[in-house]
Structure formats: structure tokens, C-alpha cells
Design a protein around this nucleic acid. Structure first.
Length: 488
RNA sequence: GCCGCCAUCGUCUAGGUUGGUCUAGGACAUCGGCUUUUCAAGCCGGUAACCCGGGUUCAAAUCCCGGUGGCGGUACCA
């Protein structure tokens, strides 16, 4: 492993469902690793015992796998830098916290939650930046030693200088400067012995030889704290890239409540992983050309971290639907059938004819935005479904815009007769030629005949071409439907 | 409140580093047309944006300053 090797990581907390923003972030990390022949590492940040939800880790793996973003190293597959779960690395954090205290970069604090709260409120009232007042830093060494020996509950705090500034060069945003006066002496090690994010992230990123930290913008304000720790420990910090936030329709950080922001729910709703990834990549980044349908290898080739847009992006479901439709249309009928399988409720006996099912797919595929649309757009083609739907079908739907009930019934009777007498080949093209010619010969209009015909056969105003439907149904079934509809 | 980030069509964005070729380009959505038996798909076309105010300059979406707005952070959560 050379020093320059690219190693990036995704560091989610196991707090329940995997957020789509996590996958979005994961993909940028993954892409960056891929194009640099580096490693993509999964590290589970479970240092908050209160928020831990059992089973979360399996969900994370399940989601990453479905999106095609499997990590190279992580809790399940291991790797040379484990363990990859923070709760299993407690000794490491304790050790480095002690080291920081020894170097004067951190100190134990015995203040109670109550005192801290009071302090904060009074600072707020005086419009001062809220920060710990370093009371415990001033403790005489003997007193500190005594209280430590007595095992009085305490935390370890970062000793941030009172003056001066620090500048960090962000890969996406350029230089960002913070003045220490506004940086708080954050807790690094909690009284329960667990580290906070600030300590754990620095220790782990360093020990796991992370080269680039690509994380959410919400971490930008705490970067000076992390830099201070690197400095105190005399470690070389990784490069940082703070990516923008994904916003909901309300322009706020996309929350879990926002309709289905769970990553796996997109799978369950019938979106394709490839479409999702393409769509996600286009939030915050854009290719040079004008082509927007990009495969994974296109992305791996063209993605540039430095080209990421620093401003937040609203998650636009409408465009996602369009893109998913594009991907659906590019699938072969066999592939589409595979993908459709978990979503399609085929009538048991009728759905077993392979040729017929494939014909149906060809007939309706352009009408699909999501895989889950399939029942609605295709199932009326099955006799049992049609029979069922007919029981609550309203005949008014048969009447075209400028028609009447009488004329419509007559038109269906007439066309039923025409089709019944027709003895030519039962294909879309031939039926069409014949019926159209008949319509013309009898001085009828296309709309007055074809609209009721199509609605009678499909029971819905939106459906495929009437002759294609006739073709797909076959003559006996078509005739059966027409007679039943008009028998009422 | 304090600190930070951000600011181009409704949305995702190109362009801004090297000011003129941007009367600002593309995509989704929307509107209209074509096709047509409807819807969808497809094709063609339209509407629609440089947050505001100063400055620098022959010339600013692009550079500088100041506002404003949005968002994020401000926990013994991540």
C-alpha cells in the first residue's frame, strides 16, 4: 500500500433506514475510489448508544449492494484496517484522548449538564457565541488528579486556542477560514467512555489511512476541530471535500419524513438501480456535454470531484420518473420481464404462457415509468382481470366526446359484426386495414367507432392502440368482450 | 444571536479560473404543434433565469465591495 493510495470511506450511523442521501454520498465516494483505483471503505459509526437500531447494518449492506456500491472493506468483509465498527474500537479512542491530554490539546472536564445549560443560556442572552468557558482547564493539577482518582464522572474536551484562525482548503469550496474564538471546546470523549464523532472520525480516518474525506456540508463547521486534533497528534490530515446537501421540496435538508427518502424504498417502488444512480449523480455534478443518460462506466470516466457544485440541490421526483422510464425503455423484453417479476401480479393460469407475456410487455412497455405501474397498464389484457373490472365499469366511459349512448351502442354492435365476419389474418395491421376500410365505406368516423371499441376491450380511457389490443387478445376473446359489454 | 456555506429558468444544471463568442445553452416539468381512435411514447417549436445595490472596465452572469435571502452548524447526536 503506497502512501498516495486513494482510500475513501462512507461512515453512516446505524440508526434505522438508510437515507437516500447516504447512497448519494456513497456513490460519489465510490466513483472517486473507482477512477483512482483506490478503496471504498464502510465504517459504522455507532458511538451513540441511544440512537442505535438493531439490524441497521444489514440494511446498509443491503442498500449499498442493491445500488451496486459494495464497499471494498467493512464490517462484513473485513480488511487490513479493522475493526470497522466504532464500538469495537473504544480502546483506541481512549488511548488517543489520553495522548491529547498529555500534549495539552485536551483536558478533563467535570462540569455537570446543568451548569453547561446555564452557561449556554446566559451566553445566548448576552449574544455571545456559545462555548464552554474552560472552567475545568483552570483546575489546579492536584485537584484534577484527586477528582480523577475518585472516578468522578468526567469528559475529555478539546482545548481550542482563544485566538488565531485556521484555514482549510476544501476540494470543492476552496479556502475556508475559521477563527478559534468561535470554535467550542467540544467533548471528545463522553463520560460513558464512548468517543464523540469529532474524536472518532479523526482517529479512524488516520488509522484507516483515509486519503480523502468526502462528506456532507453539515460537517464543514466542525472541520477546524478535526484539524486541531490532527495537528496535536502530529498527523497529516486527509484532503477534505464537503459536498452540498440534498434538499426536499421545501428546500430543507431532505428528512426521513419526506415521502420515501429511504434508499431501499426506491427499489420497492419500482425504480431501477441504474436510473437511480444516474439521477443521483446529476445532483451536484454535471457532465461536460449535454447528454444526461449516463451509465456507470460513463460516470466513472467523467466524474470529477472538483467539478461538484457547492450549492444544495432539490430532489426532483418528476425528473427521476422520467429517467426511470428512459432506462425501462432501454431494457430488452427479457430483462424487463426479469425486473417486472416481483411487481407483476399475473393471474396464475393465464400468466403462464411465455410468448403471450412477452407480447404484453412489448405492448405496454412505453407506458411504464416505474416497474410498479405494470398491473395497472397491463393486467386488463387477462380475461379474469377484465371480467373482474367489468363488474364495476361505467358504460359512460364508452361514449366518445361528441357521441351519445345510443350511437355508441350501435357503433359497438356494428363493429362487432364487422369483426365477427372478418376472416382475414388476425394481426394488428390486417385488422386495421379492414376495419378502417369498412368505416369509410359506411361513412362512419374513426372516433365514433374506435373509441368505444378500445374502451370496451380495455375498460380504461388510456390504453394502447386498439388494433394492437385486438391482436394481443385474439379473436375469440375480443368477440367475447364486445358481446359482454354490449349485452348490458 | 453567533459562526460558516451558498445564490443562473418552477426543478437539476452549463457558462464564471483566462470579462466580449451569453440578445445566457441543455435536461425535467409546463404550453403549443405534428402523428393519431384516446392516453402514453416519439418528433418539432414556445414560455421561462444571471437575488439587489454600488464599484472596476470601452465592456460583467463572469472581477471587487456592501446588502438581502436560503441553508447548515452552534449537544456528553452523528
Amino acid at each position: 500500500m503506497t502512501k498516495s493510495a486513494v482510500r475513501v470511506r462512507l461512515a453512516p450511523s446505524p440508526t434505522g433506514e438508510v437515507h437516500i442521501g447516504t447512497i448519494w454520498l456513497a456513490q460519489f465516494n465510490w466513483l472517486f475510489a473507482q477512477q483512482n483505483h483506490g478503496a471504498f471503505i464502510l465504517r459504522v459509526e455507532d458511538t451513540d448508544q441511544k440512537r442505535f437500531v438493531p439490524g441497521s447494518m444489514d440494511r446498509i449492506y443491503e442498500a449499498l449492494h442493491w445500488f451496486g456500491l459494495d464497499p471494498d472493506e467493512g464490517p462484513q468483509q473485513g480488511g487490513g484496517y479493522g475493526p470497522y465498527v466504532q464500538s469495537q474500537r473504544l480502546k483506541l479512542y481512549r488511548h488517543h484522548a489520553d495522548e491529547l491530554v498529555q500534549r495539552g490539546a485536551a483536558y478533563p472536564c467535570f462540569c455537570t449538564i446543568e451548569r453547561l445549560q446555564k452557561l449556554r443560556t446566559s451566553q445566548e442572552e448576552r449574544k455571545l457565541p456559545p462555548r464552554y468557558d474552560k472552567l475545568c482547564l483552570g483546575l489546579p493539577p492536584e485537584e484534577r488528579a484527586k477528582r480523577l482518582a475518585a472516578e468522578e464522572p468526567n469528559v475529555i474536551r478539546l482545548n481550542v486556542p482563544m485566538t488565531g484562525t485556521i484555514t482549510h482548503r476544501d476540494l470543492i469550496r476552496g479556502p475556508v477560514t475559521f477563527s478559534f474564538a468561535t470554535v467550542d471546546d467540544s467533548v471528545l470523549l463522553k463520560s460513558d467512555g464512548f468517543p464523540t464523532y469529532h474524536l472518532a472520525v479523526v482517529v479512524d480516518d488516520h488509522l484507516m489511512a483515509i486519503s480523502h474525506v468526502i462528506r456532507g456540508e453539515e460537517w464543514l463547521p466542525s472541520t477546524p476541530k478535526h484539524l486541531l486534533i490532527y495537528q496535536a497528534l502530529e498527523w497529516v490530515p486527509p484532503l477534505f471535500a464537503h459536498v452540498p446537501l440534498i434538499l426536499g421540496p421545501d428546500h430543507r435538508k431532505l428528512s426521513k419524513r419526506e415521502g420515501a427518502s429511504s434508499a431501499l424504498s426506491f427499489r420497492d417502488q419500482g425504480y431501477l438501480a441504474a436510473a437511480m444512480r444516474n439521477f443521483l449523480a446529476l445532483m451536484g455534478w454535471h457532465p461536460k456535454g449535454e447528454l444526461e443518460i449516463l451509465s456507470s462506466s460513463d460516470l466513472q470516466r467523467d466524474f470529477r470531484l472538483e467539478d461538484m457544485n457547492p450549492s444544495g440541490a432539490v430532489f426532483d421526483r418528476t425528473k427521476l420518473d422520467w429517467m426511470n422510464g428512459q432506462y425501462l425503455r432501454r431494457l430488452s423484453r427479457e430483462e424487463l420481464r426479469q425486473h417486472l417479476q416481483p411487481f407483476w401480479h399475473l393471474p396464475t393460469e393465464e400468466g403462464s404462457d411465455d410468448q403471450h407475456v412477452l407480447a404484453i410487455i412489448d405492448l405496454v412497455r412505453d407506458r411504464l415509468k416505474k416497474l410498479s405501474d405494470i398491473d395497472e397498464v397491463a393486467n386488463f389484457l387477462f380475461p379474469s382481470v377484465w371480467d373482474q373490472e367489468r363488474t364495476h365499469f361505467d358504460r359512460v366511459a364508452l361514449v366518445p366526446k361528441k357521441g351519445t349512448g345510443h350511437l355508441t351502442t350501435a357503433a359497438i354492435d356494428w363493429v362487432t359484426g364487422v369483426l365477427d365476419r372478418y376472416a382475414g389474418p388476425w394481426t394488428s395491421r390486417d385488422i386495421k386495414a379492414h376495419v378502417l376500410a369498412e368505416i369509410q365505406a359506411k361513412a362512419r368516423t374513426n372516433t365514433e367507432v374506435l373509441w368505444p371499441l378500445r374502451v370496451a376491450l380495455t375498460l380504461r380511457p388510456n390504453s394502447p392502440d386498439v388494433f394492437d389490443v385486438l391482436d394481443c387478445l385474439g379473436k375469440p376473446e375480443s368477440m367475447r368482450r364486445l358481446r359482454l359489454v354490449n349485452a348490458v
